[in-house]
Amino acid sequence: MFAVMSSPTAAPLRPARPKLLHPAAKPLLFVACLLPFVWLLYAAVMNQLGANPAEALIRATGDWTLRFLCIVLAVTPLRLWTKQPALARFRRMLGLFVFFYAVLHFLAYAWLDMGFDVATIARDIPKRPFALVGFLALLLLVPLAATSFNRAIKALGASRWRALHKSVYAIVLLGLLHFFWMRAAKNNFAEVAVYAMVIAVLLGWRARNAWRARRASGG
């Protein structure tokens, strides 16, 4: 999921470290990615989410969605900077966890704020810009999650599959805008600034690499 093209000008990659290729690496990562969900579930059951549990759950699942988006975007830069190609084998799982936490975020809103009333949800989303961009980001995630499998790559063709998964860049910007509008209601911009800086660095790195690749190819 969320394929990212590497620059042809990147330095040669060293052989992967054995730990990254260990059979337990993926299961351990899977467990680590589930820990935020386990903690939120435990906190909800044990009534440890504060005075407003509904808001805490909605906010936390949204925060983790944005964090996992940043982690996914960081895989390729880290892979090249550390010269460890095996890092790429974790990107699909991380991308699917983006979708997992995004769905949890929407379900928390639909259940705890809207009581799963479809008509109310349909009226509420278009009225509030932050809800609209967040819902749009979720819709864009659906085809990425649905095509995060080898059969999908073969069916679509590698070039079309990569083009589709580049929509992750639009998704992360929509997610950041959603986050900004959520925090703007309470004049809380400190976290927004941190995420914006991280995303700007990650997208700026890709833009620079794409520009260098075009120059190298004479485009």
Score class of each variant (00 low, 15 high):
residue 1 M to E: 13
residue 6 S to I: 06
residue 7 S to Y: 05
residue 9 T to P: 00
residue 9 T to E: 05
residue 10 A to F: 04
residue 10 A to R: 14
residue 15 P to G: 05
residue 16 A to L: 01
residue 19 K to P: 01
residue 23 P to R: 10
residue 24 A to N: 05
residue 25 A to L: 02
residue 25 A to I: 02
residue 26 K to C: 05
residue 27 P to A: 00
residue 29 L to N: 09
residue 31 V to I: 14
residue 32 A to Q: 05
residue 33 C to F: 08
residue 33 C to I: 01
residue 33 C to V: 05
residue 34 L to G: 14
residue 35 L to V: 15
residue 36 P to R: 01
residue 38 V to W: 13
residue 42 Y to M: 05
residue 44 A to Q: 08
residue 45 V to I: 15
residue 48 Q to Y: 08
residue 48 Q to E: 14
residue 50 G to M: 01
residue 53 P to L: 12
residue 54 A to E: 12
residue 60 A to R: 06
residue 60 A to I: 00
residue 61 T to D: 03
residue 63 D to R: 13
residue 63 D to S: 04
residue 65 T to A: 12
residue 65 T to L: 01
residue 67 R to S: 02
residue 70 C to S: 12
residue 70 C to R: 06
residue 70 C to W: 07
residue 74 A to E: 04
residue 74 A to I: 07
residue 76 T to G: 02
residue 76 T to R: 10
residue 76 T to S: 11
residue 78 L to H: 00
residue 78 L to G: 09
residue 81 W to P: 00
residue 81 W to T: 02
residue 83 K to M: 12
residue 86 A to Q: 02
residue 86 A to R: 04
residue 89 R to C: 05
residue 90 F to I: 04
residue 91 R to D: 05
residue 94 L to F: 02
residue 95 G to H: 00
residue 96 L to I: 08
residue 96 L to T: 06
residue 97 F to G: 12
residue 98 V to F: 04
residue 99 F to D: 03
residue 101 Y to P: 03
residue 102 A to T: 07
residue 103 V to K: 07
residue 109 Y to I: 14
residue 110 A to V: 01
residue 110 A to Y: 11
residue 116 F to W: 13
residue 118 V to Y: 04
residue 118 V to Q: 05
residue 120 T to Q: 12
residue 125 I to L: 02
residue 125 I to F: 04
residue 126 P to H: 06
residue 126 P to I: 00
residue 126 P to L: 01
residue 131 A to N: 08
residue 132 L to P: 00
residue 133 V to Q: 01
residue 133 V to A: 08
residue 134 G to L: 02
residue 137 A to S: 07
residue 138 L to C: 08
residue 138 L to N: 09
residue 140 L to I: 05
residue 143 P to Y: 03
residue 145 A to D: 06
residue 147 T to G: 13
residue 147 T to N: 10
residue 149 F to K: 09
residue 152 A to S: 14
residue 152 A to E: 03
residue 153 I to Q: 08
residue 154 K to H: 09
residue 154 K to Q: 13
residue 156 L to V: 13
residue 157 G to Q: 11
residue 159 S to R: 14
residue 163 A to M: 04
residue 164 L to I: 13
residue 165 H to M: 10
residue 166 K to C: 04
residue 166 K to G: 15
residue 168 V to C: 14
residue 173 L to C: 10
residue 177 L to E: 07
residue 177 L to M: 09
residue 181 W to R: 09
residue 183 R to P: 01
residue 185 A to Q: 07
residue 187 N to I: 06
residue 188 N to V: 04
residue 189 F to A: 06
residue 190 A to M: 07
residue 190 A to F: 07
residue 191 E to L: 15
residue 193 A to G: 06
residue 196 A to G: 15
residue 197 M to H: 06
residue 198 V to S: 08
residue 199 I to W: 12
residue 199 I to N: 14
residue 200 A to P: 13
residue 201 V to M: 14
residue 201 V to A: 15
residue 202 L to D: 13
residue 204 G to N: 08
residue 205 W to D: 14
residue 209 N to S: 14
residue 209 N to Q: 15
residue 210 A to M: 07
residue 212 R to F: 02
residue 213 A to Q: 12
residue 214 R to T: 01
residue 214 R to P: 02
residue 215 R to G: 03
residue 215 R to T: 02
residue 215 R to K: 15
residue 216 A to L: 09
residue 216 A to Y: 00
residue 217 S to Q: 15
residue 217 S to N: 15
